[in-house]
């Protein structure tokens, strides 16, 4: 591998890691607060991409308006999921998981019916051209994902550690019973966690829309990666999810470049299987799933 390919792969890795982190952070947060795994998280990402397609491509508005609209729309979807599904499946994590598998099906068909068939939706790239570093070319559209993801993660960290509401959220993740004794409404916190999960997935979907192929099934691949990331990082650990996203983003991109994508996928699930068997609590997690 020569230097230019290396630089290019490095930049691609950082971009891939950013997307993985954005998607996985929401999943880990929902898992931490509710002890529930949301398989429809990939469909949240897909809906984010479709909202951008609607606002930017069909209505012809500014790209960033599309991104800003996608975040609350998908956050609302997250809240609705918490209300209708997780609150009713009780403490049974498998029932919650399977119900969201069903929700994934529902959302896929909904997207298919609203936005129609066809192989994929084309979106005009708002930021043409590519950054050139040496002989390496990386499209601007891909590069702008990186600062957006970093900004979102910093904002999330600031919220969790400096705002009262964020601290309450962390308290619920640690021990819901004690948290409710302190006067924290656990139900509102689970809703907030799902809203944040939806918001980050929506943001990731909207940002990826111009560079990914938009289909109703685009979330399928990403949700599996998100699960690998949170398992490796520690299912309920937001920090662990970020670390694992960076590690897996690099491994995935480099293996894809050096070998092929099937091997990269194999390495991903292999790492997940190994983590679950050898260190079930993950890199930074405290409890086993």
């Amino acid at each position: 591998m020569d230097l230019d390919t290396f630089v290019q792969t490095l930049l691609n890795s950082i971009q891939t890691s950013s997307v993985y982190a954005l998607v996985a952070v929401g999943l880990a947060m929902a898992f931490g607060v509710m002890k529930m795994a949301n398989f429809a998280h990939g469909e949240f990402y897909m809906i984010g991409a479709y909202v951008l397609y609607q606002v930017y491509q069909l209505w012809g508005l500014n790209f960033w308006i599309g991104v800003v609209v996608a975040i609350p729309v998908v956050a609302l979807l997250g809240v609705a999921t918490e209300r209708v599904i997780f609150r009713n499946t009780g403490a049974n994590i498998l029932a919650g998981f399977m119900a969201t598998v069903g929700l994934g099906f529902v959302l896929q068909v909904a997207a298919l019916q609203i936005w129609g068939h066809g192989l994929m939706k084309r979106i005009d790239t708002p930021y043409m051209g590519a950054a050139e570093i040496g002989d390496a070319h990386v499209g601007w559209q891909r590069l702008i994902i990186i600062p957006c993801a970093i900004a979102m993660l910093i904002a999330l960290r600031w919220f969790l550690y400096n705002v009262k509401l964020g601290k309450a959220l962390r308290a619920c993740a640690q021990d819901p019973e004690t948290a409710s004794l302190q006067g924290i409404k656990v139900r509102n916190m689970t809703m907030l966690a799902m809203a944040i999960a939806g918001a980050s997935a929506g943001l990731a979907g909207a940002l990826m829309a111009p560079v990914a192929a938009i289909t109703p099934y685009m979330g399928h691949h990403i949700v599996i990666i998100a699960f690998i990331v949170i398992v490796v990082g520690g299912t309920a650990s937001v920090g662990g999810a970020v670390v694992a996203a960076i590690i897996l983003g690099f491994i995935h991109t480099f293996v894809t470049t050096l070998v092929d994508s099937t091997t990269a996928a194999m390495v991903g699930v292999g790492i997940m299987a190994l983590t679950l068997v050898v260190r079930p609590q993950g890199l930074l997690g405290r409890e086993t799933p």
Binding site: A37, L94, F97, I228, V269, G270, M272, A273, V277, T288
Partner: peptide, 27 residues
């Protein structure tokens, strides 16, 4: 190896091993 896990851990580990087998068929 899956004996070490149970509940949701078992569920997701079996998925990981299953995908691994499926990738072997593809590869």
């Amino acid at each position: 190896p899956m004996l070490r896990t149970k509940g949701f851990g078992f569920f997701i580990t079996s998925f990981a091993f299953g995908e691994l087998i499926r990738m072997i068929w593809v590869k």
